[in-house]
Nucleic acid binder design. Sequence first.
DNA 1: ACCTGAACACCGTTCAAGT
DNA 2: ACCTGAACACCGTTCAAGT
Lengths: 187, 187
Amino acid sequence: MAVNRELIVGAALGILDEFGLADMSMRRIGDALGVQAATIYWHIPNKQALLAGVSDAILADVPVPVTDQPLAAGLDAWARSLRSVLLGHRDAAEVVAATLAVGLGERVPDEGCVAALRRAGWDEVRARQAARAALHFVLGHVTQEQTRRNLVDFGVLKSPIDVLDDEGFTVGLDIVVRGIAGWSPQA
Amino acid sequence: MAVNRELIVGAALGILDEFGLADMSMRRIGDALGVQAATIYWHIPNKQALLAGVSDAILADVPVPVTDQPLAAGLDAWARSLRSVLLGHRDAAEVVAATLAVGLGERVPDEGCVAALRRAGWDEVRARQAARAALHFVLGHVTQEQTRRNLVDFGVLKSPIDVLDDEGFTVGLDIVVRGIAGWSPQA
DNA sequence: ACCTGAACACCGTTCAAGT
DNA sequence: ACCTGAACACCGTTCAAGT
């Protein structure tokens, strides 16, 4: 059926968007492509690698940050665009977090953040540590948003007001950004 | 076999500590108690509720924070004691995060943090938002630590230096604490 | 080179039936 | 009231065999 890695990742992302991570099984992906689940293993070694491919596909839409920008504004823009990309795909925060945790995936979601910090004079190690802290906040917050969104779709929870999520994200992000920007470059 | 909720949660926690979350299946828990998996459903409605019980059991060991302490010191102490409790049980950060996300569990891991902020004059809403940001950092960081620890045990990864995790945690926590403490109570 | 069929060793959950 | 046996509808993964 002329199936390849790209088509498989695309089908997986389609199922993720429409039905969520719980429904993204090898059998369901095979069905979507008119192929057996076992066929996928000819093109991709295992499910974790497939998940990493989906994570990369999602993160491809994160825009490259503007270079000539004060640090605080750069961090804010990076975090907001990451969040908005994640909110564009169901359970995306969980997929990205899982891939990040096991160290797979070509794209590391905080490299734009690391770059902004390096340009502001931070050394490599400190920049990675600070960026990771910011990333943990973004992934944690969006995971919370998307999990609750799933519970609402499932009917076990009343629909919350999205504005509250936006406000909570703004407050948390402000804390993280001020915490970072208030640091001397090599404290 | 005189099985009850408390014994089941205890057996589940024991399997978590010894073999990890992936091995904590209803059948394995039943085996550990000399009972069928189906028996568990007489005492506990489903696996999510069982996970919530395990999460509560873990969080029971988080000490109540000292009341007469400056805000920054209080936040620091809270975050460090939460991390150290989580590191005491394999995959604990994942268990707590999953329970928190679906809104189950009696104990909310950031209530001590909320209390410290309220004593410092923060209003309820802002205190919850700031505490949640701090919690996302702690859970994200410890999840990363424990996932990598599992990969090392599995032999797919070389043993990292634990000191690096400690340092990364300190840097990230410092950012979050400074970000919070540098805020006016009702900005 | 690529795909199928069929299996292996599991899951969470339900439910009639036993004691 | 509490537990068992057996099933249902799934999983990820492997592998001989087909084309």
